[in-house]
Simulated assay, not measured.
Amino acid sequence: MTTLRVNGATLHYEVRGTGPLLLLIPGGTGGAASLATVAADLADTYTVAAYDPRGMGRSRLDDPDAEQSVEQHAEDALRLLDELSPGEPARVFGSSSGGIVALHLLLAHPDRVRRVIAHEPPLVEVLPDAADHRALLARVQDTLRTEGLMPAMAAFAAGLRKPGEDPAPAPAPAPKVELPSQATERAERTMGDLPYFLGRIVPSFMAYAPDLHRLEALPKERLVLACGEDSRGELPYRPAAFLAEHLGTDLLHFPGGHIGLTTHPAEFGALLRKAYTAYH
Rank of each mutant, 00 (worst) to 15 (best):
E178I: 12
S34V: 06
D132A: 12
P89N: 09
A40F: 02
E165V: 01
P203S: 04
L144P: 00
R200E: 02
A241D: 04
A49T: 08
A102P: 05
A207D: 13
V15C: 07
V6Y: 02
P122T: 12
T37Q: 12
E14A: 14
E83L: 15
V48K: 02
A187D: 11
P86T: 08
R189C: 06
P210E: 06
Y196P: 01
A108M: 05
M153C: 14
Q68L: 11
V202W: 00
G228N: 03
M191E: 14
K274Y: 10
E147H: 13
V202F: 00
T143D: 10
G94S: 05
L61Y: 01
T10F: 01
F156E: 00
E216T: 12
L78W: 06
A32I: 06
L160C: 12
P255Y: 04
P167Q: 11
T184R: 15
D82N: 13
P255F: 03
V101Q: 05
E185K: 11
D132Q: 12
L252E: 06
G31W: 00
T47F: 09
Y46F: 15
A266N: 10
L223I: 09
R112M: 12
D44A: 14
A183C: 09
L35F: 05
Y13G: 02
Y208L: 03
A152S: 05
P110N: 11
V116I: 09
L194C: 08
S181E: 13
H73Q: 15
I100S: 01
R189L: 15
V48F: 05
D129T: 09
L106F: 06
G30Q: 00
H104I: 03
V202L: 10
L11D: 02
A130W: 11
P167L: 08
F197H: 11
M153I: 15
A157C: 07
A138P: 03
Y279P: 02
G17P: 07
E188H: 11
V140P: 00
P180G: 12
T29C: 12
L137R: 13
S95Y: 02
L243H: 02
D82P: 01
T2Q: 14
R238K: 13
G57H: 02
T263S: 15
V140A: 07
P26A: 10
E120T: 05
V224H: 00
A226H: 02
R112N: 05
L160R: 03
A207H: 09
P169V: 07
I201N: 02
T143W: 08
A183P: 03
E234F: 09
D44N: 15
H12N: 14
